[in-house]
Amino acid sequence: MTPIPDGAEVKHGATVRLDKVSFSYGEASFLFDVEFAASRITAIMGPSGSGKSTLLNLVAGFEAPGSGRVLIVELNVSAAPPSARPVSMVFQENNLFAHLSVERNVGLGRSPSLGLSGADREAIAGALQRVGLAGKENRLPRELSGGERQRVALARVLVRDRPVLLLDEPFASLGPALRDDMLDLLASVHAERKMTVLFVTHQPEDARRIGQDMVFLDNGTVAAAGPAADFFDGSGPEAFRRYIGSGPAKARRD
């Protein structure tokens, strides 16, 4: 009976809008006014301290805005606790409880007290199958590789089935090959579920590979936004080209 739509009501992605959201932490202050289109993958890039993680934390509900509104499908969720928002988030690390098995870690996405029905168990098995971890249900996180651990987190995202997915540099500690695998898995999952993905990353390749839109942050605010392709064809904003470095510039000179 929550007024906030959950996965059942919004089968596909939901628009996420930050309406003049201000936030300050110590010396740093942020002001976000931006909209993320439904069912698209938006890469969020920017220098360290520009507010990428803060933006995700505001959407997830880990931080409360000083002023302004966080809207998901035009519903104001600014005051809702994280678990009541139609959002899943995957962090760079610590996505799993170290003392719980893979199956139970995924199961927490269905029931926070692990009261699981038969249907829940089927969903869990299906999700583990989908991310390529069938047969590893009873492993503990420490018995998995870094890539596998992030797959468990992704399986939990699948069983939670929320219309918005927030990714905070989830593949940053993986090697290049593993990272490509994970990006492909993410892209195919997105093709099935069509959730709205906000993807914070430091790697231009990530954005180029699966990003449809791009939001570039600088100095605690949105410096540029638009289709991701525009950012990489050399016509992107100056600040973005500076951030990316000599790569594209050199390409032009050649």
């Binding site: 997830a60 009541a84 962090f91 409880f97 927490l108």
Partner: peptide, 22 residues
């Protein structure tokens, strides 16, 4: 665990038994 618990809505007794106690 803090953000994970908040995100998944694990609180009160569930949190004590599933997360904090172990």
């Amino acid at each position: 665990h803090e953000r994970l618990c908040a995100q998944l809505g694990i609180s009160g007794w569930s949190r004590l038994i599933l997360v904090d106690w172990p």
